[in-house]
């Protein structure tokens, strides 16, 4: 029994000390952002590997999610004779929830895990240490540009996801199932509010981009520099990002859409 408590205490202390390290890491990372802006080349390279390389998976997923919403929405709405509001349903679910959340989950799986593995491997092969010995701060040179790139890419990717999804829903809805195309768009426009829906969705994706990039980079930086350590860190990135995204989504939704 005492052993159990000792174990519990040890692991609690461990997770607090990890949170402390993560916070310190975040502060260092944020303080390095200024120097990244002076060297846009570093940011550009990372926008490529974080953003551009996630583009394909995000667009394809967005298209299919939109088409599925179109199908499902049509079957449900047609029971109430409200097929005309299909556009509203597709767009609201994408812009408010699925766009930010699903694209953030995909982003954590695609870009987040890659970032963790990359940083972890750089640590294991002494590249970070080597940089420090060359009087180059690895946080400024390696971490901050990646963080900023993730932070910028996420809202763009989420917007692409939603936009492509809405078009996908329209292809199915009015192309295949015969919902009036004008009604699809005009109902959407009257029902979706710019600040309530679009801006809130963007805020969500900004928050998710921040948290996912933070987790991915920290897990890599904090990884045990062995192949097993890196593979564990990569798994933790995906799992922790998913939990954080879904948990934060609940909180943000309650804050944003709660008092209507």
């Amino acid at each position: 029994m005492t052993e159990l408590f000792a174990q519990l205490g040890k692991s609690t202390r461990g997770s607090f000390s990890k949170l402390g390290r993560a916070t310190f890491f975040l502060l260092q990372c944020l303080s390095g952002i200024g120097s990244v802006l002076l060297r846009p080349r570093l940011l550009l390279n990372q926008l490529h590997s974080v953003g551009v390389l996630s583009f394909l998976i995000i667009s394809i997923s967005g298209l299919f999610v939109g088409m599925v919403l179109g199908l499902q929405g049509f079957y449900i709405l047609s029971e109430f004779g409200a097929e005309e509001t299909l556009g509203v349903m597709v767009a609201a679910s994408l812009v408010r929830e699925l766009g930010p959340v699903v694209s953030a989950l995909l982003f954590a799986g695609r870009a987040g895990s890659a970032l963790t593995a990359e940083i972890g491997l750089m640590k294991a092969t002494e590249q970070l240490s080597g940089m420090e010995m060359m009087a180059v701060d690895p946080i400024k040179r390696i971490i901050s540009p990646r963080f900023l790139a993730g932070f910028i890419s996420m809202p763009l990717l989420a917007a692409l996801f939603s936009a492509i999804g809405i078009v996908g829903g329209q292809i199915i809805g009015s192309g295949l199932l015969g919902v009036d195309e004008g009604a699809y768009w005009s109902q959407m426009q009257t029902k979706l509010d710019f600040t309530d829906d679009i801006i809130n969705g963007v805020i969500k994706s900004v928050v998710f981009g921040f948290i996912t990039s933070w987790i991915a980079l920290f897990e890599g930086y904090d990884a045990v520099p062995t192949s097993e350590g890196i593979s564990r860190a990569t798994t933790r990135t995906v799992v922790n990002s998913a939990f954080s995204i879904l948990g934060l989504d609940f909180i943000l939704t309650a804050l944003m859409f709660g008092d209507d």
């Binding site: 490529h48 953003g51 551009v52 812009v95 763009l156 692409l160 959407m188 979706l192």
Partner: peptide, 25 residues
């Protein structure tokens, strides 16, 4: 590619703002 990506992302944001929401109205 980075240019295309950023342009597409911004275009998507504009699309959401103008075509999907009531901003235009």
């Amino acid at each position: 590619f980075v240019g295309l990506f950023v342009a597409a992302g911004i275009a998507a944001l504009f699309f959401l703002a103008l075509q999907v929401s009531n901003l235009s109205s």
